[in-house]
Design a protein around this nucleic acid. Structure first.
Lengths: 198, 198
DNA sequence: CACTAAGTGGAGCGTTGTTCCGTTTCAGGT
DNA sequence: ACCTGAAACGGAACAACGCTCCACTTAGTG
């Protein structure tokens, strides 16, 4: 499927060959550095790893959000596409929603500081926030609607609020055994379900 | 009540008079700047506002967390003391827990970026995190236990996890009409309650 | 009043984000 | 093959910030 021309992502066709090559080199280096040092890693470090100048990175990815977006583009896409699939295969719409949220959480917690970046109150990552929302919010809304229609959960919950809440719950120090976001998210979903008695 | 000698907070008695005066001046300036620019405001800015050198601030408050702690000391204390009070006055232990959490959320959302700082994965604010936990975790645990004992909520929830979850839900851009942490927290509490039917 | 130790201020260093500009390299036309 | 304009490049340069160091000032005591 064609995934060119998303927000903040200039198409790579039509550029000079060396530029396209460098773009890939930077992307690969950034991916490595992000794993090692988180998405806040110094640009210099990424430039050094890629063997390019800093200006090259800024030229290809004007903001840090653009770089992060490009690095995780495939995985975001996968997550978005999993929504409809799960709705078709899961036991119930509610179950589909739960499984999808699980995927989303997996994605967030395995990326160093990604959740933090997404919800940061500095606007350095505003574009990243926007991209996530553009791509995943409709999917979440669809799952939520289906679950409401099936009578699995109470109506009235806003998809945006739910997604941000889940993202927020994933924020913070990684690998703290005392804090497992999934447990709280399960609690949240429990609260979303209809009370089973009058 | 005597609240001297907390973690990272040197007692102000026994110091020279001008030092004590400066300490207060810095605290007042920091409080103003925090409101205007958040708890991440540059030290230089606070120093300028207070009319002192940067070293003076660092001497009184070695880390930024110490400064933040000192600025909000009274309010944290109030929040801690509200726990037992609410337990005595509320309709039920569960209601006390709900009201206490409401107080806590109030505190967090009215301070620019405080929730962010608390849960940040950088360890610049580790001491702040620790202080909050030392002071508020026992209060939360007490309320939680009381609610469990009264049969209001299911057992098994860890106080640490709950507090961090609530803190996390308060992270992010302030005053976004699309995101109201309280709604999600209410949902979470709902999930915490016993299912009302088999 | 003099003396000492506590206290102070700001210059200075290291780190990071971001821009600017002289130089190099590609690609299409001759 | 060569020429040439434009695209792309690298890193120096500037700004903002955290934090430290040290020469100077001042409070309090005998």
């Amino acid at each position: 499927m064609a995934t060119e021309g998303h927000a903040g992502e200039p198409p790579s066709r039509g550029k000079r060959a060396d530029a396209q090559r460098n773009r890939q080199t930077v992307l690969a280096a950034a991916a490595e550095v992000f794993v090692a040092s988180g998405v806040d890693a110094p640009i210099r470090q990424i430039a050094a790893r890629a063997g390019v100048g800093m200006a090259t990175i800024y030229r290809h990815f004007p903001t840090r959000a653009d770089l992060v977006t490009a690095v995780y583009h495939h995985q975001i896409e996968e997550c978005a596409e999993a929504g409809p699939t799960l709705l078709a295969t899961a036991d119930s719409p509610f179950d589909a929603l739960r499984q999808w949220i699980d995927l989303f959480v997996d994605f967030l917690v395995t990326k160093h500081g990604l959740a933090d970046a997404l919800q940061s109150d500095s606007d350095r990552f505003a574009a990243l926030h926007t991209y996530f929302l553009d791509r995943l919010l409709p999917v979440c809304a669809h799952l939520l609607d289906a679950a409401v229609d099936a009578g699995d959960i109470r109506p009235g919950t806003q998809p945006y609020e739910l997604m941000r809440g889940i993202g927020n719950l994933c924020v913070g120090r990684d690998n703290d055994p005392r804090y497992e976001p999934r447990r709280l998210i399960a609690l949240l979903l429990q609260g979303l379900q209809h009370p089973h008695a009058p």
